[in-house]
Simulated assay, not measured.
Amino acid sequence: MAAMKLPVMPPVSPMLAKPVAEMPPDASYEPKWDGFRSILFRDGDDVELGSRNERPMTRYFPELVDAARTELPPRCVIDGEIVIATPEGLDFEALQLRLHPAASRVRLLAGQTPASFIAFDLLALDDCDYTSRPFGERRAALVETLAGSGPTIHVTPATTDIRIARRWFSEFEGAGLDGIIAKPLNLTYQPDKRVMFKVKHQRTADCVVAGYRLHKSGDDAIGSLLLGLYTDGGALASVGVIGAFPMATRRALFTELQPLVTTFDDHPWNWAAQAAADPALARRYGVGSRWNAGKDLSFVPLRPERVVEVRYDHMEGKRFRHTAQFNRWRPDRDPRSCTYAQLEQPLTFRLDDIVPGLGRP
């Protein structure tokens, strides 16, 4: 990186988006990709992959470094998203597993679950700094610059037709995308500023509270509640957590939930015992590893008798993709009635239909 001499030099904090309920008019609209935000810097053979927190991710994605050297102009800076695309859609869990400390594991995963880079903004090209130019001009230059890229680096689709953007909002979720980003056409590139707009799906679900984790401040407050839904076979599946409570509520919840505290003997989520008995599960859950991308095995089990309504944006597989938000308690609901059947099922949509060549086996 020290040898780089670009008009925009790393580290750079990416430009951000603020949530809105409706798509703003008179903008450029593009899918909101579900991956790792990254600004890619290339100066000849020197390639750097930055992240949202400005820490380099270059070592974790050697296949993207190789692709940048073969598919990009010799000197450029491009804002985009690192994703793992499969025939079934985006796989964020596989992407998380790529952040591994062992170089041998990084090389293995680069071959087994290769990543792609979705480009959506141009910050610099050759000796020209594009950050002060309006987005409409940056977008046109990006499309022209990456016209010959592929099969690893792709340009995100975009439209200025809000009717098309609304159709994308409903259709593309079926491929694992989680909303729409709207960018004013005259917008300059403003690092770390929430000057774009994002529209995400908002839904509710009634979930069973089956456990809690303690708050980091002490033993008399709830840190998060563990949520479950019943499958068609009658098993209680773990779907996510809620944890954004005022401290007074955390303490009150701790007292309220004590009568429901039980043992792991008959609890469906005795993950620690399951992992101890099965080495494959232990590896999956990453017991004792700071790189664990699976479940935290330490929690206080509760009898699954309380129901809470939560807000969520979308699912990834059988779990909430992001932390759900508390809506209200549902004392009127039978916990056994809290099943996956209540969830809205998005249309199935192929990544290849959004970006040709993406997600092909």
Rank of each mutant, 00 (worst) to 15 (best):
residue 90 L to K: 05
residue 91 D to C: 06
residue 92 F to A: 05
residue 92 F to G: 04
residue 93 E to T: 15
residue 93 E to C: 08
residue 93 E to I: 14
residue 94 A to C: 05
residue 95 L to W: 06
residue 95 L to S: 10
residue 96 Q to V: 11
residue 96 Q to I: 02
residue 97 L to Y: 09
residue 97 L to R: 01
residue 99 L to V: 14
residue 99 L to D: 02
residue 100 H to G: 09
residue 100 H to Q: 06
residue 100 H to Y: 08
residue 101 P to L: 11
residue 101 P to G: 09
residue 101 P to A: 09
residue 101 P to Y: 11
residue 102 A to I: 07
residue 103 A to M: 10
residue 103 A to G: 01
residue 103 A to D: 10
residue 103 A to K: 10
residue 104 S to M: 09
residue 105 R to L: 13
residue 105 R to G: 14
residue 107 R to L: 11
residue 108 L to G: 05
residue 108 L to Q: 02
residue 108 L to F: 00
residue 109 L to A: 03
residue 109 L to E: 02
residue 110 A to I: 06
residue 111 G to C: 01
residue 112 Q to T: 10
residue 112 Q to F: 11
residue 112 Q to C: 07
residue 113 T to M: 00
residue 114 P to H: 00
residue 114 P to E: 05
residue 115 A to I: 13
residue 117 F to I: 00
residue 117 F to M: 02
residue 117 F to K: 04
residue 118 I to Y: 08
residue 118 I to P: 03
residue 118 I to S: 00
residue 119 A to W: 07
residue 119 A to N: 02
residue 120 F to S: 10
residue 120 F to P: 01
residue 120 F to M: 01
residue 122 L to Y: 06
residue 122 L to P: 03
residue 122 L to N: 01
residue 123 L to R: 03
residue 124 A to D: 04
residue 124 A to G: 14
residue 125 L to S: 02
residue 125 L to D: 05
residue 125 L to W: 06
residue 126 D to Y: 01
residue 126 D to N: 08
residue 126 D to F: 00
residue 127 D to I: 13
residue 129 D to F: 10
residue 129 D to A: 03
residue 129 D to Y: 03
residue 130 Y to G: 09
residue 130 Y to A: 08
residue 130 Y to C: 08
residue 130 Y to R: 12
residue 130 Y to K: 09
residue 131 T to A: 09
residue 131 T to K: 03
residue 132 S to C: 10
residue 132 S to W: 02
residue 133 R to W: 11
residue 134 P to G: 03
residue 137 E to A: 13
residue 138 R to P: 13
residue 138 R to N: 08
residue 141 A to I: 06
residue 141 A to G: 04
residue 142 L to A: 09
residue 143 V to H: 07
residue 143 V to Y: 06
residue 143 V to D: 15
residue 144 E to R: 08
residue 144 E to G: 14
residue 144 E to M: 11
residue 144 E to W: 00
residue 147 A to Y: 04
residue 147 A to W: 02
residue 148 G to D: 12
residue 148 G to I: 01
residue 149 S to L: 00
residue 150 G to M: 13
residue 150 G to P: 07
residue 151 P to D: 11
residue 152 T to E: 07
residue 153 I to H: 06
residue 154 H to S: 13
residue 156 T to E: 09
residue 156 T to L: 02
residue 158 A to F: 12
residue 158 A to T: 15
residue 159 T to M: 02
residue 160 T to Y: 03
residue 161 D to Y: 09
residue 161 D to E: 03
residue 162 I to N: 08
residue 163 R to G: 13
residue 163 R to D: 15
residue 164 I to W: 12
residue 164 I to G: 05
residue 165 A to P: 12
residue 166 R to K: 08
residue 166 R to T: 00
residue 167 R to E: 14
residue 168 W to H: 12
residue 168 W to M: 15
residue 168 W to R: 14
residue 168 W to L: 15
residue 168 W to P: 15
residue 169 F to K: 11
